[in-house]
Design a binder for these strands. Structure first.
Length: 272
DNA sequence: TCCTATGTTGTATG
DNA sequence: ACATACAACATAGG
């Protein structure tokens, strides 16, 4: 479920907790989601802490609590945040449960690819401060994209867009949506892009991110049928542009949906 | 039973 | 040192 906009949507699900105190922590201490995290410290420090702010950065979430307590959450592949009124019994996949006076906050993740971090410090934790610029940040420019391209010339566009060090928040469906709109084959190597195509790619990255945040992030509903989004999930879908069958195949180790008649291969270089 | 899944990371290889 | 490819992680659902 969670890419840029879904992560933002999940963050909102804990919105009502802000300004309120945690009175009890329940967790599955041996869950994989706590890898690299001190469970005893988390258990000792969160009770009594008031949630003050919450924010997302790409697929990362950070919750600031009183007293310099920071809770980081990554949803992985199947993670979600849930709020239930009053008390709520801890379920099998509810790895972290924070009870407040009027509500219970739940981090649920069946596959445990998600991750919880806890930091005690005045400043935001180092891992958060060193995240790359967001793709909707003013500093994410076509020039920066061109720099990334020059470092990853032999990477297929599909794999390239999934690199979080350059495109925090882009995931499998966003990458397919961006390439479909930019009319670029996911199999192309980044080194085959001309300057104009790099500008197009930059523009579509930002348009998909903005649109996803508007529809999914804020309204919690799917994008319109003019997007690839609603046609990509199973075999038999038709390209909204060409009305021809979409192709689903593994590219760069991930299932990729694309429209071969619409998304161009590089123009063959002239034989010598 | 077998295959798939909106993600990241460690490891091997070039 | 850097770029690239891929198995592994744990679980549910078709």
């Amino acid at each position: 479920m969670p890419e840029l906009a879904e992560v933002f949507f999940n963050l909102q699900r804990w919105q009502s907790a802000r300004g309120h105190r945690v009175i009890e922590v329940r967790l599955h201490p041996n869950s994989r989601v706590f890898r690299g995290c001190s469970v005893p410290q988390l258990q000792a420090q969160l009770p009594g802490a008031v949630m003050q702010t919450s924010q997302t950065h790409g697929k990362q979430m950070l919750f600031q609590f009183s007293g310099g307590r920071w809770l980081g959450i990554h949803l992985g592949m199947t993670g979600e945040l849930v709020t239930e009124a009053g008390t709520y019994p801890q379920g099998k996949h509810d790895h972290l449960v924070l009870r407040q006076q009027a509500r219970t906050l739940i981090f649920r993740d069946p596959r445990q690819f998600g991750r919880v971090r806890f930091t005690l410090s005045q400043e935001a934790p180092e891992w958060w401060r060193s995240l790359p610029p967001q793709i909707l940040d003013l500093t994410f420019t076509p020039h920066r994209l061109a720099q990334a391209v020059s470092r990853r010339k032999k990477t297929p566009l599909k794999s390239f867009l999934l690199l979080q060090e350059y495109f925090p928040g882009i995931g499998n469906w966003m990458a397919d949506e961006i390439l479909w709109r930019a009319r670029l084959s996911p199999k192309r190597l980044t080194g085959s892009l001309n300057p104009n195509q790099i500008r197009t790619l930059h523009r579509e990255i930002q348009k998909v991110a903005r649109g996803a945040l508007r529809f999914i992030g804020n309204q919690g509903k799917d994008p319109p049928d003019t997007w690839l989004f609603n046609h990509r999930w199973s075999d038999g879908g038709l390209c909204p542009k060409t009305k021809k069958p979409l192709v689903r195949e593994t590219i760069g180790g991930r299932t990729t949906c694309w429209s071969p008649a619409w998304q161009r291969e590089p123009r063959p270089t002239t034989e010598i």
